[in-house]
């Protein structure tokens, strides 16, 4: 079984390396794909993000990272806070997650 696993892994890695090569070989001239967010159809926070995306992509990228981090931290704290008050013993065992 272990052998199948490693065989599969190697195959997958090989695939990952080969894919760019095949894509390159296909080599037809492909045009860039540009997306314009349709701000006419949305309101509120969706409109804000799509406006930002349309006008300033770099800013929206930085913003996306910062906001994701902020929300991740925020949710982490909130949930820890709530779970600690549930009365369960959360310290007596190892948490492995990623």
């Amino acid at each position: 079984m272990q052998r199948i696993y490693h065989w599969g892994k190697n195959l997958l890695m090989g695939l990952a390396i080969m894919l760019p090569a095949t894509a390159w070989a296909a080599g037809e001239k492909a045009t860039n794909i540009v997306v314009v967010a349709d701000t006419r159809r949305v309101t509120g926070i969706l409109k804000y993000f799509s406006d930002l995306y349309n006008t300033n992509v770099v800013m929206s990228a930085v913003w996306a990272v910062v906001l994701t981090v902020a929300i991740g931290c925020f949710l982490g704290f909130i949930m820890d806070f709530i779970m600690e008050r549930s009365g369960l013993d959360l310290h007596s065992r190892k948490i492995i997650e990623h």
Binding site: N54, N56, M59, W63, V66, A70, C73
Partner: peptide, 30 residues
């Protein structure tokens, strides 16, 4: 440590919110 991280994130969020609000563009389709 945790409090420091919160502070940094809050300040950054505030800054970007200010910077981000200025931009808006019209959209049309046809």
């Amino acid at each position: 440590m945790k409090r420091r991280i919160i502070q940094i994130v809050m300040v950054l969020a505030g800054l970007f919110w200010l910077a981000g609000t200025a931009a808006a563009a019209e959209v049309s389709q046809g």
